[in-house]
Computed example of a mutant assay.
Amino acid sequence: MQAISSYSSTSYPNDRYHSSCIVKADGKTPLVAIADLADSGDIEAWKKSLAANGDLGSASDRKEFPAGDKGKGISSSRTAAIYLKCTPAGSKLTIPLNLSITVSGISKAPSTRADIAQVALAFARYAQNSAHCTSPAALPAAPPSQLQG
């Protein structure tokens, strides 16, 4: 098995941030992780945007989970997304910003839901640090048991 990974991170002073990680094995792409600093609005607007884009599959497959004290996570059998409020150090913007993290493509098996959420939480921790969020959320070490199986 040949494994290839690609990573990029772009941090702009104050108000823009993007990071992505693509992992390929045997010519397939089993994992894609993306974090963006955005002005998605509140959590409900963010969830509607994800649903409209088809980013999380069917509504019946989605499960929500807490992402620390300031965020929200949603997972399906193939994708997990996390919303976190983020004000980068030195930002002069008056609109509220958030980090939007998505991880997708591991497997179609429902048993991987917690694994996908675990990767999303790890990438969210990295993104909060890299985007220089002034009050980062205290993210859990692992996804809640409701996502198992």
Rank of each mutant, 00 (worst) to 15 (best):
T112V: 10
D36E: 14
G71I: 05
N53C: 06
Q148V: 02
A120W: 08
G41D: 13
K47R: 12
S111E: 08
L97P: 01
T79R: 05
L139M: 12
A114S: 06
T102A: 08
A80P: 06
E64A: 15
G57I: 04
G27Q: 04
T10G: 10
A124M: 03
L50F: 09
A127D: 06
L37C: 03
A114W: 01
C133P: 12
A142F: 08
Q148S: 06
I34T: 13
K48Y: 08
C133M: 08
E64P: 05
K47N: 04
I34M: 03
S77I: 00
P96R: 14
Q146Y: 00
G90T: 07
N98T: 14
I74A: 02
A67I: 03
P110Y: 04
Y12P: 02
L139Q: 14
D15V: 01
S91P: 02
K92N: 02
H132D: 11
A109L: 14
A80V: 11
D42W: 05
I101V: 13
Y12H: 14
K108T: 11
I116S: 00
Q146E: 08
I34L: 01
K72N: 15
D36A: 03
R78T: 04
D55R: 14
D115K: 12
K47L: 14
K63M: 12
A38C: 03
S20L: 01
L56A: 09
C86Q: 05
G105M: 08
L121C: 01
G90Y: 05
A120H: 05
K28A: 14
S60F: 01
A51H: 06
A81K: 06
L121Q: 02
H18G: 00
P30M: 04
C21L: 11
I116E: 01
D55V: 10
L147Y: 12
Y126N: 05
